[in-house]
Design a protein around this nucleic acid. Structure first.
Lengths: 68, 68
DNA sequence: TTCATAATCACAATATAGTGGGATTTGCAT
DNA sequence: ATGCAAATCCCACTATATTGTGATTATGAA
């Protein structure tokens, strides 16, 4: 969970937007966002997708490669 | 939400495992899994990741490309 | 340091995800 | 059509995610 939080935080900073702004744009509570960024939350898919979409990010799912 | 459900369902079938088996292996309830596969749920990230991991799938997040 | 803004925290209330149990339906064999 | 297993439905309960408010604590700039 820490990973996605960091991705969101870094992308947000790269776009120079505050937590409050991002939360508002994504339609989620500020508390929810701060916890997610810190990896202290188990957010619903809806919330995650909303935040990622707002940040211009997308998810894709693929078969795990077993490269070392 | 429909999309991830279909991905899970197709991957599960490709591996020839039943919903009950997958649910048990992933540590989630059968009802939860059936709803997710049908796109009638808004699952938590924990549940989604557990299912994907069990299926040998992984998620990655990238900047949305604006190709047409 | 001082000031302003951003981020985190703490609390309580509401919404909803996750669950099991049992009934029902669907799908696919023979 | 019959039988079996898989999938779905229904219901009620529990767990927890989400929320707003207000206070507190960083962070950074002048």
């Amino acid at each position: 969970m820490k990973e996605i939080g960091n991705i969101i935080k870094e992308r947000r900073k790269a776009l120079s937007v505050t937590q409050r702004e991002l939360a508002a744009l994504a339609g989620v509570g500020i508390n929810t966002l701060t916890k997610i960024e810190r990896g202290e939350a188990n957010p619903s898919l809806k919330v995650v997708l909303s935040i990622l979409h707002t940040l211009g990010l997308e998810i894709d799912i693929k078969i795990k490669s077993n490269k070392l």
